[in-house]
Design a binder for these strands. Structure first.
Lengths: 180, 180
DNA sequence: GTCTATAAAAAGATAGAC
DNA sequence: GTCTATCTTTTTATAGAC
């Protein structure tokens, strides 16, 4: 079978969930194995070390990112609105992966930092292609980043104040192009 | 002496630096003591546990936040521009403290999450008082958040693309009020 | 492929000397 | 106040049975 075994996927998914929900420190081999429903030995068969687990997350993330970039360049609403809208989407597979990669980056995993840097520059390029102005493109990126930062922080302030106001925000995005 | 001893401050500062630069996992008692130039025993005299160290960070942060909020409500440039401008300031004492608190929040320290939530709602209120519209106030908050998120990520994408363009961005902020 | 048992190192914390 | 020594628990990783 060319397809990777189900247990491997379960381990990766458990690790990502732990990174997102409880942070890098809590994402131990034991906790990951337990959440995946396997033993520590079982986990270490599929991922020989902690580092291998991180590599697995990053590779899996790259696939989701590729899909997202393709879609972003094709949607009729335009790259900017697509970017801000999807930045506010929580619990998508892409979002879970990116939060996990961010946690790894903050824990000092170099390849995770490099991936985030690369993804951001690719998003920026697509937005710049649409809006045609560097400053406006930066503004759009920062709004999405801010949104993402809030949503990626459990129990964040947004939940009480921002909830339900996303549409109003999205309506403002196309108008940003009129600035200057 | 009513003033806390210098060694205590050094320990707190070392812990904050480690949280910011290497993440929560790397900020061990041993690493903190070493960076502060004391032994593990010396560190544990001032902070009886890891939790006490986190409490120390949060208390110290609260003081810096108070000063910032007072200044934000008084500056002639207005709360919005002040907020976005200072969000881009890296290596200030306030910024270092807030990054440290964010790391703790992501590691599951509840009081750190609560502090961040509280700070954000106070910033939001001052901005809302100035701009008078909820959606615009959210936009301003998100731009600052995005800026902060980039700067708080070492080796971030901003350094190559965004560097030197801050003034252009700040010039756009007052114009956001004209939207809608 | 998956498990149990176990080793080796690191981390948090205590006790007591100075 | 600060240090060294020590203990306990946790974490990563290995070995080998099934």
């Amino acid at each position: 079978m060319a397809r990777p075994p189900a247990a491997r996927s379960k381990c990766l998914d458990a690790y990502i969930s732990l990174l997102c929900e409880e942070g890098e420190r809590a994402a131990t081999l034991e906790a990951t194995a337990s959440r995946a429903g396997v033993s520590k030995g079982g986990l270490l068969y599929h991922f020989a070390s902690k580092e291998a687990l991180a590599v697995g997350v990053i590779e899996s993330t790259e696939e989701h990112v590729q899909l997202d970039l393709t879609r972003m360049s094709e949607v009729p609403e335009g790259a900017s609105v697509y970017y801000v809208r999807t930045s506010a989407e929580v619990d998508t597979e892409l979002d879970r992966h990116l939060v996990a990669v961010q946690r790894l980056a903050q824990a000092g995993v170099i390849s995770a930092s490099e991936m985030l840097k690369d993804v951001h520059s690719r998003w920026f390029q697509l937005i710049l292609d649409e809006v045609g102005d560097q400053s406006i493109a930066h503004l759009v990126i920062l709004i999405g980043e801010g949104l993402y930062a809030h949503l990626a922080t459990p129990g964040s302030w947004y939940q009480s104040t921002f909830d339900g106001r996303l549409q109003e925000l999205l309506d403002l995005v196309p108008q940003l192009k009129k600035l200057k």
